[in-house]
Simulated scan of single mutants.
Amino acid sequence: MRILLAAVAALVLAGCQAEVPGRASADGFVVKDATRLRFRPVLTELPPGPPAGAPGQRQSTDPATQEAAARALDCEPGTPDALDGRDDPALPLVSCDPTQGARYVLGPAFLSGADVGWVEARLDPATGSALVALNFTAAGARTWAEWTGGNVGKQVAMVVRSRVLTAPQIQSAITDGVTQITGKFTMPEAQQLAKDIAGA
């Protein structure tokens, strides 16, 4: 997915009251490997830039170690990730979005691909803009409602194989199990993000 950095900052998560939980359109994707996708809170975001310092411990619980590891992380597209999905979901994670170059310090995972029923890209009928919709399972919807309710205004990272796909901001508590990721997407970009989230 190729989106300008300004567009990434505008990504938001919102609920969608008109959706029927559990139903996906013909363009929807089911998460193929539930262990690949993890939802982690964003603790810190660092801007893009060249790596500075020696590679550090990316799953430390020490804030100073986390920041040093984030500054040293090479986020250039195509750079191999030493963790490559072997991160411990119970520990914090230093990661990046290789498309945008932003570096993140993330908290422990609180949801996984097993909590997502389906993902799809579609047009918002109100605005005509492309968006990505996620539908959570019943258990996932309960956790998501609690987490979003307590973290309005904060970012959440959707991580696949230790890399951040997107880190939108929570706009409100999302209590119905259906979430929209909105931003300055083209439809091909939204479709690619939906496929990447689902591992399709």
Rank of each mutant, 00 (worst) to 15 (best):
A10K: 14
S129I: 06
Q192D: 11
G49W: 00
W144V: 08
G128P: 11
P63E: 05
G140W: 00
D97H: 07
A109C: 05
R142Y: 05
P89R: 06
L83T: 02
R142M: 10
R161K: 13
G117V: 07
K195C: 12
A141E: 03
A167V: 04
Q180W: 10
C75L: 08
V42P: 07
S162V: 05
S112H: 02
P108E: 08
A126Q: 15
A26E: 14
R161M: 10
A194G: 00
Q191C: 09
A121C: 06
L5Y: 01
G107V: 11
T65A: 12
D74W: 02
Q17A: 15
R122C: 11
E120F: 01
L111N: 02
A173N: 09
P92W: 02
P98I: 02
G128N: 09
P47V: 02
E189G: 05
T137N: 03
L11R: 08
Q57E: 13
V42A: 01
S60N: 08
A114C: 10
T137C: 03
A72D: 07
A141R: 03
C96E: 01
A26V: 12
S25N: 14
V119A: 12
R38V: 04
T175A: 13
R2S: 15
M187F: 09
G101E: 01
A54K: 13
V156K: 00
M158I: 13
A72M: 06
S25L: 13
L4P: 00
T179R: 01
A69Q: 06
K195G: 10
P77L: 11
T175E: 13
P125I: 02
D84S: 14
C75D: 06
D33L: 11
V8S: 05
E19Q: 14
P89G: 04
D33A: 09
A64N: 13
E19G: 12
C96V: 06
P92H: 09
G107Y: 04
Q17G: 14
P80T: 10
V159W: 04
A7P: 00
P98K: 02
L11F: 14
V178T: 06
Q59T: 08
I170R: 00
K154P: 09
P55R: 04
T44K: 06
N135S: 15
F29W: 14
A14S: 15
Q192E: 15
